[in-house]
């Protein structure tokens, strides 16, 4: 404490103590992660899964499709980390390669459904006549559970990863369009949009410059949830044999094949199930974290 001599007649106020310990502001990237632990955990798990998918061949895997009838249903051991299935294939390798299918489907569906939903949502948010028609169609589609819709679509085509993506995307579009339309309708009422109209901005520019960028935050959040639900839908489709062809290892396939042996060899189902759960958890954590970080008010809306 410095002792400053006050001029005569001057009274200084008593200093107020700190009642909360001073904390260092959490700034920068690490600060952001510390303030948003869900993003940190979800993001870490997600990166881990992407790493696994990309580098699967280098992570001590064997050929996931190599049959070895002599080595059927081996328990997990140093040789076969997750054991082998009823055709003698290495479950560890199959699960790691299965990550590729799951992530491809999840990300692709999230991207395609968002783009399609964004387009449809923008159109119906701006064109009155189109709105009532499009939204009734979407209502109709939403009355069918997405999984049933996807099964029906898969029944029309051959099983392939591309077709799985297409089927799930179509099933997810109505939800995204509804969200975007709702956001567009509320953004249209914003004073800055009125100000832009008064400033002579043309409608297409208003959509691109004033509406679109402001839909991206809620859309990103929605996309993560779609990603998670697409991964689950893919696993279900593959599990019931309506998804990826059996030749491509996917978590749903592996579980389907292990189903018959569930009571004696539970690990065949267990390991892909754990991977699926962790990945879906990661994506959902990321989504929740992004929602809170991007717009705290949206937490109530979604």
């Amino acid at each position: 404490m410095s002792t400053t001599v006050l001029p005569p007649g001057v009274a200084a106020a008593a200093p107020m103590p700190d009642i909360l310990p001073a904390v260092k502001p959490k700034t920068g990237f690490t600060g952001f992660l510390r303030r948003n632990p869900t993003i940190a955990i979800g993001g870490f798990l997600m990166l881990l899964m992407v790493f696994v998918a990309v580098f699967a061949p280098f992570l001590w895997t064997k050929d996931p499709t190599a049959l070895a009838p002599a080595l059927r249903t081996r328990e997990p051991s140093a040789e076969w980390w997750f054991g082998t299935d009823m055709l003698g294939r290495d479950v560890y390798s199959r699960v790691l390669y299965g990550t590729r299918v799951s992530l491809t489907v999840g990300f692709s569906v999230a991207i395609f459904a968002s783009l399609a939903g964004l387009t449809i949502g923008l159109i119906s948010g701006f064109i009155r006549i189109a709105d009532s028609i499009i939204m009734r169609v979407m209502d109709g589609m939403m009355s069918i559970p997405p999984i049933l819709l996807a099964i029906a679509l898969m029944a029309l085509t051959r099983g392939s990863v591309g077709n799985v993506i297409l089927a799930i995307t179509i099933a997810e579009i109505p939800r995204v369009s509804r969200l975007v339309r709702g956001v567009v309708l509320s953004l249209r009422e914003q004073p800055y949009v009125d100000a832009a109209v008064a400033a002579g901005t043309r409608t297409p520019v208003i959509i691109l410059r004033h509406i679109l960028p402001n839909t991206l935050a809620p859309l990103t959040v929605q996309a993560t949830y779609i990603c998670a639900s697409a991964m689950i839908t893919e696993a279900i489709l593959s599990f019931i044999g309506a998804g990826t062809p059996p030749i491509i290892p996917s978590w749903g396939n592996i579980m389907a094949e292990g189903r018959a042996l569930w009571q004696v060899k539970p690990y065949i189902v267990f390991f892909p199930a754990v991977f699926l759960s962790i990945t879906v958890l990661a994506v959902n954590l990321l989504g929740d974290g992004l929602r809170d970080a991007l717009d705290p008010r949206m937490a109530k809306r979604l």
Partner: peptide
């Protein structure tokens, strides 16, 4: 439209945040 412009009430929602 150039000849008439507008200033709104809410200083927060009248500017595009992006």
């Amino acid at each position: 439209r150039r000849r008439m412009q507008v200033v709104f009430q809410d200083p927060f929602s009248s500017l595009n945040p992006r």
